[in-house]
């Protein structure tokens, strides 16, 4: 026995992984890695930017924060969660990726994602293409009228906006009303045939949420809230997310 206690190294610094562990249920199991590599072997992002999920997690465990928070790989992982599915310890690597995105200064994040988020914040639609509630309403009504006439079997078909008391609140990807409006119609027909009581909202109709992909929590929440507030306002029972 030695007389004095041996102290190893300095006090451990608070690493990026420590911070992420604090905000995840069960710490995202981030310190349970067995290093088996099941995550990486089935990950389509393995090899991009010389990175893979296992390596990313090991680097986090080693406190290599500068590398983790600067690799563009975090924008190439889609956070599909297959790595969690195959992981024997159910480690939440996607949340580690998401939070690494969040460490990037806003103006340095990918311009396309940033721009789409900003567009969605521009008005009350929540559309990544910046389409206004008025423009959306106009397109929907115009297309509906056209089809009611062209296909008389569907003369009673509706595509309501802000219908009070509808059962289903349906959102809509902006791509259809803006670039290919005819593609909205098949879904309307199906809803009509099954007798669904549904509505779009003039507010919060945009189905896509690029603020989530931007890893900007406050804006992400704002867009979701905008849609759910409108659904509640209309008394809808079920939120149908078409995305």
């Amino acid at each position: 026995m030695t007389e004095k206690t041996i102290k190893l190294g300095k006090k451990k610094k608070n690493t990026f992984m420590d911070k992420v562990k604090e905000i995840l249920p069960e710490g995202g199991n981030l310190n349970l890695c067995l290093t088996c590599g099941a995550c990486s072997s089935g990950c389509p992002a393995t090899g991009l930017e010389n990175m893979d999920p296992r390596k990313f997690l090991r680097m986090a465990a080693l406190g290599m924060d500068d590398e983790l928070t600067s690799t563009p790989w975090v924008w190439m992982c889609t956070m599909c969660q297959r790595c969690i599915y195959v992981c024997p310890m159910k480690i939440d690597i996607p949340q580690l990726v998401y939070n690494a995105r969040d460490t990037w200064p806003r103006e340095t994040r990918p311009k396309g994602i940033l721009g789409s988020c900003d567009m969605a914040l521009k008005n009350e639609s929540g559309s990544a293409m910046g389409t206004s509630p008025d423009d959306f309403t106009f397109v929907v009504e115009d297309v509906l009228e056209e089809y009611q006439e062209a296909q008389p079997e569907f003369k009673d078909m509706q595509a309501p906006i802000d219908k009070q008391g509808a059962e289903f609140f349906l959102n809509q990807n902006s791509r259809e009303p803006v670039t290919e409006p005819d593609e909205m119609v098949p879904l309307w027909k199906i809803l009509h045939l099954v007798g669904a009581n549904w509505t779009y909202g003039s507010k919060g109709w945009g189905g896509e949420n690029y603020c989530m992909f931007l890893a900007e929590d406050a804006s992400w929440k704002h867009l979701v809230q905008q849609s759910t507030d409108q659904a509640h306002e209309l008394g809808c029972k079920t939120f149908l997310n078409t995305e």
Partner: peptide, 11 residues
């Protein structure tokens, strides 16, 4: 590979 913002990321 279309999700997570990848389509708009520029990569």
């Amino acid at each position: 590979g279309g999700g997570g913002g990848f389509l708009q990321s520029g990569y």
